[in-house]
Write a protein that binds this DNA or RNA. Structure first.
Length: 1044
RNA sequence: GGGCGCUUAACUCAGUUGGCUAGAGUGCCUGCCUUACAAGCAGGAUGUCGGGGGUUCAAGUCCCUCAGCGCCCACCA
C-alpha cells in the first residue's frame, strides 16, 4: 500500500481526507465539561463585507497554531468562530453594488421609507442576503485553511445571542447613567445627505484661498496709541461666518488685554459677538514654518456649529451654536439660525454654500472689508461617494461617558498594584484624569497591574496613551444596518414634570405585560424629552405598538383606527397615558449602534452572556487575543473595558499583535490596488499547508510580511494571482511527504518490543539528541509567541539533520537484520515526533502522514526512553516532550567531526568532478584519540563520502597523487587525484581562509586590555580557537610544501 | 503635529543579555535523473550590517545624529 504513495505531494486529496477525519471525530468541538484546564481564543470576527484576504490567512493561521498546540498539550481548547456585521462598511458595499447594478439603492429605499413603504426593512433584507453570502464564503475559507474552530458555536455580531448581550449591556450602561445624548459634529455629505465615517472621508489637496475679513469692533479700542476699529479674521470658508458666535485670540497675544471682552459686530448679520481668549488660537508669525502661524492674523472666527475645533472652543466658553445650513448644504434660517433679519442675510438664504461663499466675499469686497486674499493649498475632506466637500454638521448623538465614575462596588476591587490618587473626592489612576472606576479606568487598570500583556511589548504604549486621552465614545450611527438603538422618546407637555411620568409609564408597561426592566433618561437642560430604554427585546413589540397607537391618536386621519393586539386589553390606560404625558407621539430612535459596540462584547457575547452557562464558566476569560495592530484602540481596549464592566474580569490576558501583509513593493494589500491574494487561490496553487508554512515562517516580531504577487500557471493551465513565496512551503511539504514515504517503505514490521535502548548506535543517539533539542526549542518558541523561530528549528532538524544525514545512514542498517529493529523503532519514533511538532503549522499533511504511519507502524515509542500512547488523529496526540536524558553533547560532537570529514572529501570529489557513483580510496591521519573516533565511525564516513577503501592511522603520510584536506584536526587524503595546480589552488584558498580567522584573534590576544578586561572564559575560548587555527595553518602549509 | 517600526548577500528576512571568521530561504554558478524527494542531491560565489559620530578591551547589537522607507493616531482657521 505504501508503495503506491505518489512522489509528488497531492495537497488537494490529503486536505480533503484530513478535513473529513477531523469532522467525523468532532475534534474541534470544545467541551465545557472537560476537567482539563481551558485555553480559549475568540476569533477577531472578520467583516462580512468581503471574502478573506491574506492578512486574515495570517491572522487565523497563527491562532490555529496556538490552538492546535494547546489542544495537543491536553488543554480543553475553544476557538470561537464568527463574523462581524461591520455596520457602515457593509451597508456601503451593498449600496455600491446595488448602484453598480442599476438597481434601487439606498437613496431609493430611503424615499420608500419616507413614503411609509418599509424601505428600511427591504434594504436590510438586501444587506442580509449579502451577509449570508459572504459569511458562508468566509467560513468556507477558514475551513479550507484548516482552522480548528468550534464551528458548532459559530456566531455573528447581529445574531440573537449577540443581540441579547448588546441589549443587556446597553440597558445596563443606560441605567448606570453612562449613556447620554449630546451634540456632535459629524461628517455630512450634503449631496447624498448622509453621515460619513471618518475613514470614508477622502482627503484631497485643494488649491484654495484664505480670505481676510474685517469685523468692526463695537467701539474702537486704543492699542499702542492707535485707534483700532476692527479685527481681521482669516478663513477658508467665508460662508460659515454667518454662524460665528465669537472671535477668539490667544491670551498671550499682546493685544489681548485690550481686546478680550470687547464686542464685535458681525457683518451682514449684525450680531454682536464677544472677543474671547483661547489658547487654541495660533499666534501670527509671518516667518514661521508653521502654515497656521504664517497665515494667522491672531484672530479666529468661531463657528461652533460648523467646525469641530470651533465646537470645542464653543464648549469651553459656553458660546451660542448657530447652524446656518440646511441638510442639503444651502444657507437656511430654518435649522437654528434665528437672527437672519438683515436684508443682506435674507438675500443669502437658499443659496448653495459655494454660491453663498462668493456672494459673501463679494459683499466684503464691496464694503471694503476684504483686507486681503491669499492663495492657500490645504486638505479638504470629500465624500467618497459624491466627491463633494464634506460639511461638518451638528447633530444629536448618543455617547458613552468613559470617564464618569460608576457606582458599582463590584468594580472597585483593587489589589493596590495600580497607583492612584484622590482629587476632589474622586480616585484617579495616578497622573491621569481617568477615574479608577470609570470605563476607561477599568480598561487601563489591568495593564498597570500587569494582568494584561501585549506581545510585542511596545504596543502597550499605544493602548495606554489612547485610554489616557480618551474622549466620550459616540455610539450612534445614522445607518440602517446594525443594532437599532433600543431607546424610545417622547416630548412631555410643558406642564408635566419628568418625575411624574416615570412611575406611571413603568406601571403602564407592566400592566401591558412588559417582562423586563424599564429605565428612563432626561437630557440635561432639556427636561421635556423623555428617553426610555427597556431591558428585554421581547418588550419592544409592546412599546412599538404604543408608539403606533400614539401616531393614530395624534394623526387620526392617516390610517384606520386599530388598537394593536399587545395593548388591546389596556387600550384605555394607554390612551389616558398618551393624553396626559405625550405631547406628540412616541418614537423609537432610528439610529443604530456603532459596530464596535457589539464587537466590544465579542469575548463573552459569543459565550452566551448575560445568561449564566457552562461555556462562559469554563472558557471566560480567554487566554489570548491575536490581532493586527490597527485595531488595538478601536477594538482591544473596548473589549477590556466591557469585559470588566459586564463580567468584572478582563477578556484575555495576552494580546498578540502580528505583522501586516504587504505586497512585493511594501504596499498594503487592497482590492483597489488589485494586489491581494485570495487564500483559496493560494491553497489552489500551493496547498493550505504550504500557505500556512510560508506565512508562519515569515512572521517575526518586527517585520511586516512582504508577499510578492505574481501570475502563476497551475498544472491545469489556469493562471492565477498567487505568490512565489509559497514555493517555500510547498517544497517543504513535498520533502516531508517524501521523507515520510521513504521512512514508511522501511517501517513495515516494526516491532516495538524488539527495541533495546542499549543497542542504539551513534546515529540514533545523535538524532534523538537533536530531536529533543528541537522539541525544547519549539515549545519555548511557541510559549513566547514566536512562529518563525520554532519553524526554522524544526526545518533545520528535519531537513538538514534527519533527511540529509540520518535517513541516509539508515539505508544500510535497514538491510542488516541485527540493526533493523533498532533503526526502525528510532525512525518511527523520530518521524512521529517530528510530525507532531509540525502539526500546528501544517495540519493537513501531518495528519495524512500520521494516518499512514498508524496503519504501517501503529505502535511507536522507545521502551525505556519515551512511551507513546496511540492516537486516532494527530491533532489529539500528545505534544512531544523533551527527554533531557537524550541530549548527548559528546555524540553531537563526534557526528560533527564525522560530517566535517565527509564534507571535506565531498569537496575534493566535487573539485575533481568525480562521479557520485564512483568510489574513491582515501585515508585519514590524526591524533590517536581522533583516530579511534574515526575508526569507530569509518562506515558512516565511507558510506556518505563514497570512500572505498578508507584507511585511518596516526601519522599517516600523504600518499603520492593524493589530495590533502585539513578537516579540523584531521588530515584527509583522497587518493589518486593528480592535479598539483588544482591542489595548490584549493590549499591556498583554505590557507587564506584560516589566516583570515587567525588575524583578529591574534590581534585580540595580543592586546593587554582584552586579556585583562574581557571575561576569562571569552579569553580562554579565543586562545583555544587560535591554537586550533594555527594547527590547521601548519598542516596546510606542510601540504603546500609537499606539492613543490 | 504625536507615537511606533524598519534600513544586514541580487531578493525576502533572522541575528538572544555587546564576545568564535555575520546566518537562513530564494536566486545565481558547477556537477549529478546516486532506487524517498529534480518541488531533489553534492559542491561553490556573494555583505564598508543606510551615512556620520560616541561609549567599550570588543558594536550588526548600546547612545547621539543625519538620511530614506512604512504604519498608527490626531489635525488641517
Amino acid at each position: 500500500m505504501t508503495r503506491e504513495i505518489p512522489t509528488i505531494y497531492d495537497s488537494t486529496a490529503v486536505e480533503a481526507q484530513a478535513a473529513a477525519l477531523w469532522e467525523a471525530g468532532h475534534y474541534f468541538h470544545a467541551d465545557e465539561m472537560a476537567n482539563s484546564p481551558s485555553y480559549a481564543i475568540v476569533i477577531p470576527p472578520p467583516n462580512v463585507t468581503a471574502a478573506l484576504h491574506l492578512g486574515h490567512a495570517l491572522n487565523n493561521t497563527l491562532q490555529d497554531i496556538l490552538i492546535r498546540w494547546k489542544r495537543m498539550q491536553g488543554y480543553a481548547t475553544l476557538w470561537m468562530p464568527g463574523t462581524d456585521h461591520a455596520g457602515i462598511a457593509t451597508q456601503t458595499v451593498v449600496d455600491k453594488r446595488l448602484r453598480a447594478e442599476g438597481k434601487p439603492a439606498l437613496v431609493d429605499y430611503k424615499q420608500m421609507q419616507e413614503r411609509g413603504e418599509n424601505g428600511r426593512e427591504q434594504f436590510i433584507e438586501k444587506v442580509q442576503s449579502w451577509k449570508d453570502e459572504y459569511e458562508a464564503c468566509i467560513l468556507g475559507q477558514l475551513k479550507s485553511m484548516g482552522c480548528s474552530c468550534d464551528w458548532q458555536r459559530t456566531r455573528f455580531t447581529m445574531d440573537e445571542v449577540c443581540a441579547k448581550a448588546v441589549r443587556t449591556n446597553f440597558f445596563n450602561l443606560f441605567k448606570d447613567g453612562l449613556i447620554y445624548r449630546g451634540k456632535r459634529l459629524v461628517n455630512w455629505d450634503p449631496a447624498t445627505q448622509t453621515v460619513l465615517a471618518d475613514d470614508e472621508v477622502e482627503h484631497q489637496n485643494v488649491q484654495g484661498f484664505f480670505w481676510y475679513l474685517q469685523y468692526p469692533l463695537q467701539t474702537p479700542v486704543i492699542i499702542d496709541g492707535k485707534s483700532v476699529e476692527h479685527v481681521t479674521v482669516a478663513t477658508t470658508r467665508p460662508e460659515t461666518m454667518l454662524g460665528d458666535t465669537a472671535v477668539a485670540m490667544n491670551p498671550a497675544d499682546p493685544r489681548a488685554t485690550a481686546l478680550v471682552g470687547k464686542m464685535v459686530r458681525l457683518p451682514i448679520v449684525g450680531r454682536l459677538i464677544p472677543i474671547i481668549a483661547d489658547e487654541h488660537v495660533v499666534l501670527p508669525n509671518p516667518d514661521s514654518d508653521d502654515e497656521k502661524a504664517k497665515f494667522s492674523t491672531g484672530f479666529l472666527k468661531v463657528t461652533p456649529a460648523h467646525d469641530p475645533d470651533d465646537w470645542q472652543i464653543g464648549q469651553r466658553h459656553d458660546l451660542d451654536v448657530i447652524n446656518v445650513m440646511a441638510p442639503d448644504g444651502s444657507i437656511s434660517d430654518k435649522h437654528g439660525w434665528d437672527d437672519a433679519d438683515s436684508p443682506e442675510a435674507q438675500n443669502l438664504l437658499g443659496m448653495d454654500r459655494f454660491e453663498a461663499r462668493e456672494a459673501i466675499v463679494d459683499w466684503f469686497r464691496t464694503e471694503d472689508l476684504l483686507e486681503e486674499v491669499r492663495d492657500y493649498a490645504h486638505e479638504v475632506g470629500h465624500s467618497y461617494r459624491s466627491h463633494v466637500p464634506i460639511e461638518p454638521y451638528l447633530s444629536d448623538q448618543w455617547y458613552i461617558a468613559v470617564k464618569k465614575e460608576i457606582d458599582d462596588c463590584r468594580l472597585t476591587i483593587d489589589d493596590g498594584r495600580c497607583e492612584t490618587e484622590k482629587r476632589e473626592g474622586v480616585t484617579y489612576i495616578k497622573e491621569t484624569d481617568v477615574p479608577v472606576n470609570s470605563l476607561a479606568g477599568l480598561a487601563l487598570k489591568p495593564l498597570l497591574e500587569n494582568k494584561l500583556r501585549f506581545i510585542p511589548e511596545r504596543y502597550t504604549k499605544n493602548y495606554q496613551l489612547w485610554l489616557e486621552n480618551l474622549r466620550d465614545w459616540p455610539i450612534s450611527r445614522q445607518l440602517w444596518w446594525g443594532h437599532q438603538i433600543p431607546v424610545w422618546n417622547f416630548t412631555l407637555p410643558d406642564d408635566r414634570k419628568y418625575k411624574e411620568v416615570v412611575g406611571d409609564l413603568t406601571s403602564l408597561l407592566k400592566k401591558c405585560g412588559c417582562i423586563g426592566k424599564v429605565w428612563s433618561y432626561r437630557k440635561e437642560n432639556d427636561s421635556h424629552i423623555v428617553y426610555i430604554c427597556l431591558s428585554d427585546a421581547q418588550d419592544d413589540r409592546l412599546l412599538n405598538d404604543i408608539s403606533e397607537y400614539s401616531k393614530q391618536i395624534a394623526y387620526p386621519s392617516d390610517g384606520p383606527d386599530i388598537t394593536p393586539n399587545t395593548i388591546q386589553a389596556h387600550a384605555g390606560d394607554v390612551l389616558i397615558f398618551l393624553e396626559k404625558y405625550v405631547d406628540d407621539i412616541i418614537v423609537r430612535d432610528e439610529d443604530v449602534l456603532d459596530t464596535w459596540f457589539s464587537s466590544a462584547l465579542w469575548p463573552f457575547s459569543t459565550m452566551g452572556w448575560p445568561d449564566e452557562n457552562a461555556t462562559l464558566e469554563k472558557f471566560y476569560p480567554t487566554q489570548v487575543l491575536c490581532t493586527a495592530r490597527e485595531i488595538i484602540t478601536l477594538w482591544v481596549s473596548r473589549m477590556v473595558m466591557m469585559g470588566q464592566y459586564c463580567i468584572g474580569d478582563i477578556p484575555f490576558s495576552d494580546v498578540y499583535i502580528h505583522a501586516m501583509i504587504q505586497d512585493g513593493q511594501g504596499r498594503k494589500m487592497s482590492k483597489s490596488l488589485g494586489n491581494g491574494i485570495d487564500p483559496l487561490v493560494a491553497i489552489d496553487s500551493h496547498g493550505a499547508d504550504a500557505m500556512r508554512f510560508t506565512l508562519a515562517s515569515m512572521t517575526t516580531d518586527t517585520q511586516d510580511v512582504r508577499m510578492p504577487v505574481a501570475a502563476i500557471e497551475l498544472p491545469d493551465g489556469r493562471t492565477v494571482n498567487s505568490s512565489p513565496k509559497f514555493d517555500n512551503g510547498r517544497n517543504f511539504c513535498n520533502k516531508l511527504w517524501n521523507a515520510s514515504r521513504f521512512a514508511m517503505l522501511n517501517l513495515e514490521g516494526t516491532d516495538i518490543a524488539a527495541f533495546d535502548a542499549a543497542k542504539l548506535d551513534v546515529t540514533d543517539k545523535w538524532i534523538l539528541s537533536r530531536l529533543m533539542k528541537t522539541v525544547a526549542a519549539t515549545t519555548d518558541g511557541l510559549k513566547d509567541f514566536k512562529y518563525k523561530e520554532p519553524l526554522d528549528e524544526i526545518y533545520k532538524f528535519f531537513w538538514n539533520d534527519f533527511c540529509d544525514w540520518y535517513l541516509e545512514w539508515t539505508k544500510p542498517r535497514m538491510l542488516n537484520d541485527a540493526q533493523k529493529p533498532i533503526a526502525q523503532n528510532v525512525l518511527a519514533f523520530v518521524l512521529d515526533q517530528t510530525l507532531r511538532l509540525l502539526h500546528p503549522f501544517v495540519p493537513f499533511i501531518t495528519e495524512g502522514i500520521f494516518q499512514n504511519l498508524n496503519s504501517i507502524s501503529p505502535q511507536r515509542g522507545l521502551k525505556g526512553i519515551m512511551e507513546l500512547t496511540a492516537a486516532d488523529s494527530i491533532m489529539v496526540s500528545a505534544w512531544p516532550e523533551c527527554v533531557e536524558g537524550c541530549i548527548d553533547e559528546e555524540t553531537e560532537r563526534q557526528i560533527g567531526i564525522v560530517q566535517t570529514v565527509i564534507r571535506s572529501i565531498r569537496e575534493v570529489r566535487s573539485q575533481y568532478n568525480i562521479a557520485p557513483s564512483k568510489k574513491v580510496a582515501a585515508s585519514a591521519s590524526a591524533s590517536d584519540a581522533m583516530c579511534q573516533l574515526l575508526k569507530a565511525n569509518a562506515a558512516l564516513i565511507a558510506q556518505l563520502a563514497g570512500v572505498e577503501p578508507f584507511d585511518i592511522a596516526a601519522d599517516l603520510d600523504k600518499p603520492e597523487n593524493a589530495a590533502a584536506v585539513v578537516a579540523g584536526e584531521v588530515q584527509v587524503y583522497v587518493h589518486d587525484v593528480i592535479d598539483p595546480d588544482e591542489e595548490r589552488k584549493r590549499l591556498q584558498k583554505q590557507k587564506e581562509f584560516v589566516e583570515k580567522g587567525i588575524a583578529p584573534l591574534a590581534a585580540k590576544l595580543g592586546n593587554e586590555n582584552f586579556t585583562s578586561r574581557a571575561k576569562p572564559e571569552v579569553v580562554e575560548q579565543s586562545r583555544q580557537k587560535l591554537t586550533e587555527l594555527q594547527d590547521q595553518l601548519a598542516a596546510i602549509e606542510k601540504h603546500l610544501e609537499e606539492l613543490e
